[in-house]
Amino acid sequence: MSDVTINTQAHEGEAGFGDYFALLKPRVMSLVVFTALVGLLVAPNSVHPMIAFSSILFIAVGGGASGALNMWWDADIDRKMKRTKTRPIPSGKVEESEALGLGITLSVFAVVMLGLASNLLAAALLAFTIFFYVVIYTMWLKRITPQNIVIGGAAGAFPPMIGWAVATGGIGVESVLMFMITFMWTPPHFWALALFTKSDYGDAKVPMLTVTHGRKSTRVHILVYTFILAAVCLATGVTSIGGPFYMTVAVVLNALFIKGAFKIWRRDDAAADADNYQEERKFFKLSLLFLFVHFGALMGEAALAPFGLGGW
């Protein structure tokens, strides 16, 4: 056996570029890019296209870095759950230490570069988002409270605030409301999914509301959050980033969402089992559309503004 073959065998599990990219959770990054872009575009100040592009890119890298750190910390539970078994660390393609190194390096890189490209507030918000997601959510609260979805949702809700800060250098009632939309949307979205999927969070000892408080309580939670979400969405409509177009979209979508939440609240698991969780599935599908269309409508208002049509 030559030295070359020994070397080859020793690195059989060596990761490719795509495996490292997968550590950054590309699907989550796409939501981060979209909502951060909306936050930046609806802001009253205009931003140089190159600065806007770079800032969104660095926000996405920061989001990806927190994903890598999440996968590093959660490698033990990822190995136990079907949904996450194929991730780069549990599948043996990437070492845990590599994920940690990549996550820390990209976090520092993204925060510093965002600070240089835009302003210190945007960089500070990105740093806080990474800290919140990795330390507060992943390391501390995810495994001890059934409200983990609510806390994790907060981390995912920051990007439009960061986008707004890139453009304005500040925080406004509009950016806080955009944060609240994603924050309030995440729990009903995820709990609806939890109702109709057989999750193996129990094996991984991650407390989920459906298990700790029961499925009836989860249905109540979905309804309550949907009402708060509707209030937040309508409140956004009367701010400077809202307008008749957004308001129409928000009224229709929230009416449909509340109707769906009512149907989920009214029935029990026996009824849901009978039709294979049809209402829960419909509600979940609508929730995917809900967030995308709301932020899209906000962008629509901004796009209509140059023609004298956007806003109130």
Partner: peptide
């Protein structure tokens, strides 16, 4: 030294680089 034919790992390394 006897080099074996190119291994899949070399392609992966090339892609990564």
């Amino acid at each position: 030294m006897n080099f074996p034919k190119e291994h899949e790992i070399h392609k992966r390394r090339m892609g990564r680089n």
